[in-house]
Every structure is written in structure tokens, then in C-alpha cells.
Design a protein around this nucleic acid. Sequence first.
DNA 1: GTAACTCTAATTGTTGACAAGTTTTCGCCG
DNA 2: CGGCGAAAACTTGTCAACAATTAGAGTTAC
Lengths: 231, 231
Amino acid sequence: MSITEDELGQPLSDATIVERIVAAVMEQKLAAGAKLPEAALCDAFECSRTQIRRILVVLAERGVVTLHPNRGAFIASPDAGEAREVFEARRAIERSTVISAAAQIDKTALAELRANVRAGAAAEARGDRGESIRLTGQFHLRLAEIGGNSVLTKFLEDLVARTSLIIGLYGSRSARSCSDADHEALIDALGERDGARAAATMDHHLHDIEGALDIRDAVSGPVDIRRIFDL
Amino acid sequence: MSITEDELGQPLSDATIVERIVAAVMEQKLAAGAKLPEAALCDAFECSRTQIRRILVVLAERGVVTLHPNRGAFIASPDAGEAREVFEARRAIERSTVISAAAQIDKTALAELRANVRAGAAAEARGDRGESIRLTGQFHLRLAEIGGNSVLTKFLEDLVARTSLIIGLYGSRSARSCSDADHEALIDALGERDGARAAATMDHHLHDIEGALDIRDAVSGPVDIRRIFDL
DNA sequence: GTAACTCTAATTGTTGACAAGTTTTCGCCG
DNA sequence: CGGCGAAAACTTGTCAACAATTAGAGTTAC
């Protein structure tokens, strides 16, 4: 069973394949550091190597994939510094998107966001961690879309995917990535069109997520085995 | 005479060629809408079509180039909506970079920024518009580097290049893109490590630049010739 | 038992030829 | 003379074969 199953259809577009790979990353089905062999991708998506190589360049440009010359493509694994930079970048961007969203939001959009939170809670309840993570990412992206700036939304898409990798790398098994309570507080502020409060809430929210992680670089040099085992 | 003239050297790296094309855009040597034929680029940079095609994908991903299927690559020409989005994105990002920069800046970095302003003024005085524009862009990027967030810096690199296109499209011939006075005010605030003031100055500065432009879409539909000539 | 070395297999990177599509040119007709 | 249409020339997109590099297995020596 292939990932795509395009039912005898035409070849998938670049955009579609990129989206599917990014989605797999967000659902934690592709972990940081995973190898992406060209042949396997060609096989899975039933496409040519030319197309896959082009797609890998795009993913590398987005920071989701790292290309090692002559060794191939791997899902990126952000180090501690990059992880912190991604969160700082998200705070900068989402502060802006959420203020715009507060100014523009309508009943329909609010209902949509509430539905997202409900669906996320349901996924969490039934233990579908991948879907839960995907939905919380979706929440932030929907917010950016409501804000109406496609340039910022595109930046945020990349950052959300990279955040999934960071949570996979530095998060504990139990901790939730985004709390529903935070998202609800955000929705409340948006409902009252209170941009400043929404921005403050978002800033707090992102700090919380980052704070719940244990962002430290693994020691890469000559490891002191004795130290690790307290000998 | 080729653009590169690598003096019998090894083939240029992807990164180098991308940088050179972006630099040409920033210096307004490549205007919005210009066609980039693969053959011409291969010729100029003395490289293979494979490499050029890969580079065009990267530039497209960065928003500097637009790819029209079966028609080739063109320097992007942002419409009015995109232009405004780019400025809003810059305000979001540069607010953050400038606050970080204020917290981290030292004498060396300050001197460097002052030198940049002087060089820009000199270029302006001798009428080297390209160099002047390049240097003002450089100023903003240097600031981001001082801020120390490479993720935001990379985003800003793309936005600065796109801003050059926007200024080329919507700016009047005479207007300067970035005023030296603004940059000096920024340096002053940074020198006093006053992040909040630096952020406010930057916000003002970016609004000024945008305000000096006449960002309107050319009417693309059935043009009313009579209206245009006031008949 | 381990470390270093070699050889094989597999994967990535590049090249050149070919197919598909688009622009331009040229000729024809109104 | 201007507009229309067909054909040629050119440009882009794709593919398959080939070259280059690396990972891994197996072997040997210590």
C-alpha cells in the first residue's frame, strides 16, 4: 500500500508531494534525522527521480530537510540554537498575524477555530497524537490565513513544520504541545477583537510551549561515558 | 564579458550563483518581470542546465523568481497586495530583529553600521543608485545578523530582495528608498540599547518607505482608454 | 575480540539526448 | 498594408544511461 494511492490518476504535482511530506513531518510520522532515499520516494509517490530531486530542493529551502552532498536527504534535526530561533521567529510572526486576525475575524472564522479546538480535544481523547499535533499546527496556520498576509502565512507554514520536529526532538512523551485552554483564551480575545490581548496571549502561549521542552544539545564531542552513568 | 568571470576556476556553487542573482535584483540590475532564459544563465555562469534549473527552483521558493510552466523563469513582479504584505512582514520581523540587536550590540557592530550609512551617502552623492540601494538593504540585514537569529535573517534576506523589486515597480525615480536620517536615528537608539525606541523607529521607517511608494495595481482587465486620457 | 583495510553493492549526481510546448517568422489572403 | 494562419526555430521539461561517491559486508592482521 503506497502512501499516495492516487487511484490510477495522473502524476501528483510537486506541491501535493511537498505538502504530503510536510504533513507526515507534522504528524510525527517522519522523525528528525530520518533518511529520505530518492528511490523510496519515487516508489511511494509513483514519480520520477527528476521530480523527487526538485521536491527535495524545495523542502531543503524550507528548512524541513537537510541535504548532505553525496549522502542524500534527511529530515532536518534542528539543534538547540535553531530550536530557540524558530520559537523566537514564531513569536515575531504570530504576534503580527494574530493582531491582523483580531481586526478581521468574523463569526464564521471564529466557529471554524472553535471546531478545530474541539476536533483536537477529540483526537487527544482517543489517543491520536499525530492528528492532535497536526490540528494544533493547523490552528495557528488558520489564524495566519485569517490575518490575510500570505507572505507571513508561508513563513509560518515552514516554522510550524519545524516546530513539530523540535517537539519530537526535545519534548517529553507526556507533555502536550499546545494546550486547548490557551487556544480557547486566544479565541476569546479574538472574538472581542482585542488584538493586544490576543498578541499577549499568543506570546505567552509560544513561550509556554518552548518552556515545556528540554532544549539542550546532545554532546557531540568525545562523550564522557563515566559522567553519563555517574561513575 | 561574462557576469562571473571566475578566472579559470572551478564551477561556482549553487549558493554563489543564487547570491549573485539576488544581488543583481537588489541593485536593480534585474528588473521585475525580466526573463531569465536557462541558456543565458548557463552561459553567464558557465554551468550546466541541471544546476541552473535547481537554482531557479530555489529562487522561486524565495519569491524572487516566478516560474511559468513551459515558458520559463521570470524575475517576480509583486502585485499591490503582495507588496503591502511584504512590508507588513518586514515590520513584523524587523521589529523583532531590532529589539534583539539593541540587546546585543557592541561598539564594533555600531561602527560597522555607521560605516554602512557613510558608504551609502557616498554612493548616493556620486549617483550610484544601485550601490546605494544595495547598501541600505545591507544595513537592515546586518541589523538582523546582529540580532543573532539566523531563521529571521534568512526570511529577511528574501524580503529585502523583494522590496527592491517593489521599489523598482512602484517607486518614483527621485525618491530615496531608505533615508540616512532614519538609519542614523536607529543607530542612536541601538547605541543606547533602547530596544523599544529602536523598534518604534524601525516601524516608522518601514511605514515611511512604503508610504513613499505609489502601490497600485495596473488595471489588467478591459482598460478604459477614454478614462485614462480624461476624455 | 577488535581494529583496520579492501572490495562490493547501492545511492547520489551529472550529462546528453529526446519529447513537449511556445514563440517567432514567413507567407498568404482579405 | 494589416491581420490571420501555418511552419520553423527555439525553449523548456523529462527521461534514461553513466559517472562518482559513499555505506556496508567481509576479511585479515594484531
